[in-house]
């Protein structure tokens, strides 16, 4: 049906994913990290949709829906955490909030 080359769709997905990853690795603000994660989720979803369209199967879309579910749950918990972290540490800088680490025994 569609004249869009699959390779290009996948490339788009790869570009979006790497952009999201760059954001995730660079940003120190938790909210921005979550946004970058959303970008990555979305890119993965795009790849699934493209694969589903390639084979004419519903599975791609189903996986997209599952990713959507995952993203919704993740955002709910992630934003709750962000609120909590802001409340306790008065900052969202994730380089400062690193309590969960192994200390020298």
């Amino acid at each position: 049906m569609s004249a869009v080359p699959l390779t290009h769709v996948l490339m788009l997905s790869a570009i979006l994913f790497t952009l999201g990853m760059a954001g995730l690795l660079t940003r120190r603000n938790l909210i921005f990290m979550l946004m970058s994660l959303e970008v990555m989720f979305n890119a993965a979803g795009l790849a699934f949709i493209a694969a589903g369209a390639r084979w004419g199967q519903a599975d791609g879309q189903i996986f997209f829906i599952l990713i959507l579910t995952l993203a919704a749950a993740e955002v709910g918990v992630g934003l709750g955490l962000a609120l909590q972290i802001h409340h306790r540490f008065r900052t969202l800088d994730m380089d400062k909030v690193c309590e969960l680490k192994e200390t020298e025994p």
Binding site: S2, L6, W55
Partner: peptide, 23 residues
């Protein structure tokens, strides 16, 4: 960049066009 390059090699290797189907 490295990751994107790797994917580029991977994806652009499939040169033949595929038909896409609506679902």
């Amino acid at each position: 960049g490295v990751l994107l390059g790797e994917w580029g090699i991977l994806f652009l290797g499939w040169s033949q066009p595929f038909p896409l189907h609506a679902v």
